[in-house]
């Protein structure tokens, strides 16, 4: 009963602002497209063909690429974020909150400006090429509008989404357990896998989800830092609502994307044993 009461605000909110829009999208995905009017929906002519079109094998490389980029940037976020979160939580001392806010401060400037700054860094005559030239590594590397820039942009953009949940769970780790593990003769690696990892795993799982899921569907990053060979599924869907004028197809692709990611998330959660999420 109490649980229901706590859930009431979220229930009302989601019912109105998430479930209804979701139904609208499902409705779109079963309609007929048009130029003058984007969707023509009738109950008597549900068009499941949109779903068949959405599974067009020509689009497979774009989908695979989205998963690949999201996976790479999630992995990079773990590599960069875990040690940082661990350091802040265990050795940050009384400045822990200050360090934590420092992680977020770059994100108080607009995303677009940060991405734009990355363009300046990565462009052909940009800072990175000049630095590389000064180091004798050549100054004609191509970064911008290629895969490297997109992956970097995604990693940069989602890093706090990894660090903050990791911090929240490392912070409550019992240091005594770590020391007990050493006292019992376990080595560094063994202690990491047997004591540290299990305690922080809820945070790690949350971080992986918060980075990977939005990254798969992202479209602002690939459109600003990517080029002709880095299109991601989010851009393809956005195109359907723009130049390609196929709202039903865009909706069907979104529904399938959501189903696919949800299935993946549930398999993942089951494997890592996180029921609470």
């Amino acid at each position: 009963m109490k649980g229901n009461l706590l859930l009431l605000p979220a229930s009302v909110w989601f019912a109105l602002l998430l479930v209804i829009p979701l139904l609208i999208i499902v409705e779109y995905s079963l309609g007929k497209r048009g130029v003058i009017d984007p969707v023509h929906f009738t109950w008597s002519h549900l068009r499941f063909a949109n779903y068949k079109d959405a599974l067009d094998p020509d689009r497979l490389p774009i989908f695979v690429r989205s998963i690949e980029y999201a996976a790479i940037s999630t992995f990079a976020c773990v590599l960069l974020g875990f040690p940082l979160a661990y350091w802040i939580a265990r050795f940050g001392g009384r400045f822990r909150n200050v360090y934590l806010v420092l992680v977020v401060i770059p994100f108080l400037t607009s995303y677009l400006i940060r991405i734009y700054a990355w363009q300046v860094i990565l462009q052909d005559n940009g800072l990175l090429n000049r630095l590389s030239g000064d180091l004798g590594l050549g100054s004609h590397h191509v970064f911008l509008n290629h895969a490297f820039a997109v992956n970097l942009g995604l990693t940069y953009g989602f890093l706090p989404f990894m660090i903050l949940p990791l911090y929240a769970s490392i912070e409550r780790m019992d240091v005594a357990l770590v020391e007990a593990s050493y006292d019992l003769g376990h080595g560094k690696i063994s202690t990491f896998f047997r004591v540290i990892l299990p305690t922080v795993s809820p945070g790690l799982v949350a971080g992986v989800l918060l980075v990977f899921i939005p990254a798969v569907g992202d479209f602002v990053t690939p459109s600003l830092l990517g080029g002709v060979r880095t299109q991601m599924i989010g851009s393809t869907i956005a195109d359907q609502f723009g130049g390609s004028q196929n709202w039903p197809l865009g909706s069907a692709m979104s529904v399938l994307l959501m189903l696919f990611i949800l299935a993946g998330v549930f398999v993942y959660l089951r494997r890592v044993g996180e029921e609470a999420l």
């Binding site: 979220a10 602002l17 209804i20 609208i24 918060l210 569907g217 479209f219 909706s251 959501m258």
Partner: peptide, 27 residues
């Protein structure tokens, strides 16, 4: 509930924008 939460994370931005606008304007 978990499903809804993940749906709101995964829903492409354009789709969420269009469907919310349809909700505001027409419903």
């Amino acid at each position: 509930y978990s499903t809804l939460i993940f749906v709101s994370l995964v829903m492409p931005e354009v789709v969420m924008g269009v469907s919310l606008l349809a909700f505001y304007a027409n419903i």
